[in-house]
Design a binder for these strands. Structure first.
Lengths: 215, 215
DNA sequence: CACTTTCTGGACTTGCGGGTCCATTTTCTG
DNA sequence: CAGAAAATGGACCCGCAAGTCCAGAAAGTG
């Protein structure tokens, strides 16, 4: 079914996805028509349907995937190296800055609520994003635990899940209210929770211990 | 401008809003047409525009307001009396249960992303909901602080903001993945943070049932 | 160089759904 | 009871945007 793509075809497909993403960022999903996309990408109707036989639905899904990749990639390099408090706070600032710049828009969210929410394709995109994001956070948390900076009793996966939820909610609220306060609160308290009171031990009873050195 | 409503008129208007809300819950915003609403509520096109001169936009906004009211009201009575750990956990369970039942739907969220996000009316609805919700949480937190159960240093408003963000994000993730794990994690860790290590002062002690034990 | 496949252009169809209109009936007001 | 205001029914309009079609150009392949 999927016709083999020649290099030229792949390039065109790519151009369409990126153009569509840009258009949607600029005007919102609901306001964006296939014709807008066609105009911006200098393509024809038949090209759109050639590369996305499923029509608008399929195209929007591809755009969503594209945006999802972007979300994680511009939290880098911080997100992959959360091995010191310094790194955590740099990451925190990067996240806030990213959404501050993005303004009252979240293409991904609006995109998702536009598509059939239960569709398998949609599930795949979001599920993958959530899993990957959370996993990276959990790795960072375990790294801090290995350094004895974070209480070992803490369930790293649970903490990562909660932190991620806080970020998502913070962004969602920002979209509605325009204020970053909730996002910042969620991040700051989430991180503070990681630093919470390990007893005085840190100095005296060396942290090292157990084998695993993540990273 | 707004024509006075007779009792009959008010009832019809009400019927329209509730019917529209039901229809949207059942089929999603994008799939719901004015004609569906007309059919379900046994009204005519002209009635729809009679009560909502602004057309679909205005009707959807009214539905959003209706749903927003609902969100808070079915966290009651817990939400208004967060004065003991017992109450906090009952509330926590009520929230989880509410969204478990609701399933992979959040009419309010999809509704919002459908309307012009920056429209003053939309801002008003969400802003009001967020403010009210957060305020109730903050009151509960201060109540616990007054009892010495929660560290006085904690910024109640910030903690409430973070907790609320966690809930929102948890629900959002649930909509995408179908799993309640993130919502539960956010709630459990958020509440645990409130119980965290108050200095020795509180003699109460004992209750070390540890927050996570739920079920 | 034949030939096949993929890529592109753009005119055309079509149905749907939001919105308008006006005639008629019911309810309010004094 | 009479006039006004509000409520209702439903036919009609109409623009737009998704999707179809086919003809022809370009690019691969043996």
């Amino acid at each position: 079914m999927a016709p083999r793509l020649t290099p030229k075809g792949a390039a065109t497909r790519q151009r369409i996805v990126e153009g569509a993403a840009a258009e949607i960022r600029a005007r919102g999903v609901t306001e964006t028509t296939l014709d807008d996309i066609r105009a911006r990408t200098s393509t024809s109707k038949s090209q759109l349907f050639h590369y996305f036989p499923g029509g608008k639905e399929e195209l929007l899904l591809a755009v969503a995937q594209h945006e999802a990749d972007w979300v994680l990639s511009d939290q880098q390099p911080h997100l992959n190296a959360l091995t010191s408090w310094r790194a955590w706070h740099d990451w925190r600032d990067a996240v806030v800055e990213r959404y501050r710049r993005q303004g009252q828009k979240c293409p991904l969210n609006t995109l998702m609520s536009q598509l059939t929410p239960a569709s398998p394709g949609v599930q795949a995109v979001t599920g993958q994003l959530v899993a990957s994001w959370q996993s990276k956070l959990a790795i960072g948390i375990r790294a801090m635990q290995d350094q004895g900076e974070t209480p070992a009793e803490l369930d790293a996966d649970q903490a990562a899940a909660a932190l991620l939820a806080g970020i998502q909610g913070g962004v969602l609220i920002m979209m509605s209210t325009g204020s970053l306060a909730h996002l910042e609160a969620a991040l700051d308290l989430g991180i503070r929770q990681l630093r919470a009171v390990r007893s005085s031990s840190a100095a005296s009873s060396s942290n090292t211990g157990s084998a695993g050195s993540i990273r």
